[in-house]
Amino acid sequence: EPVTLKLSFFASDTEVNYARAIKPWIDAVNADPSGAVKIEAFPNGALGKALPAQPQLLLDGVADIAFVNPSLGPGRFPDDQVFELPGLLQNLKEGVKLYEELLKANLLRGYSDYYVVGAFMNPQYMVFARRPIKSLADLKGMKVRINGAVIGQTVKELGMVPVLMPPNEVVEAMGRGTIDATTTVPAAIVDFGIDRVTSHDYLLPLGAGPLAVLMNRKKFESLPKPAQDVIAKYSIRWIDDTYIRDLGQYNDELIAKFKADPKRTVVAPSPADLASLQPVYQKVTAEWVAKGPGNAELLSKARELLTRIRAN
């Protein structure tokens, strides 16, 4: 008799994180020859539509496993802002590895109540606008939707006007000219239909954001050994590699598609613009370091780990 676990996904089952990483994980666990675990999936927000509420939903026992965006709970997962620092990460793969290593070393607060099934990292946030952007100078004065404090600070330094807004309001706000641009990842552009209202993509790297599949730790520890083993077997390595492979590829495909689309312009910052970004990135990073007592140590540890990850 397998143990049944409820998995909550806040959005549609066609959303890319679900379709390309979580669903394959569910299928793999359910198909495991041990037959020890059966994951019952509740996508489409059937167990809760609010993404910020997912971590609490696990603690309340409404779901056993859930997809979580730690950036949305800046108090609950206070150290995760480190990934948002502009210029720290270069690609999705090293972001995932860094997240894994920091979790393994127990350097990120807020995870003690959870068993980490998957530790993903968004690709770099970039700027998607309804008005043309050819260079950094064009950003000045643009009203841009932001999704985090650090990224807000960065765009402010670049002369943009940050407007806090959940992703589901972006299309409406952009379509009606309430905002001119949004910072986000290519996948979200498609998932939330933002491609309808933007046509200018500026590949400005603005930091990344962690995403996680978490399980209630008490629930995990209460499971019989064979069930724990199945979960562990597909956790972190299996699901993260699936994510890196499929989401990395998907992200590259999307950018290629945007470039090929005659209705879109895709611009990468010039070397000169990239150089002039450095002082801005350093300033934002220094401000973040000054904000919390443990931030300096966390950042230096993260840089050390990154050096090692890049060397491999």
């Binding site: 971590p55 609490q56 709970g73 800046p74 108090g75 609950r76 206070p78 985090g148 404090a149 807000g152 806090l164």
Partner: peptide, 9 residues
């Protein structure tokens, strides 16, 4: 959980 607002904490 230490839940705080985004920008002003």
């Amino acid at each position: 959980a230490g839940d705080v607002t985004w920008l002003l904490n």
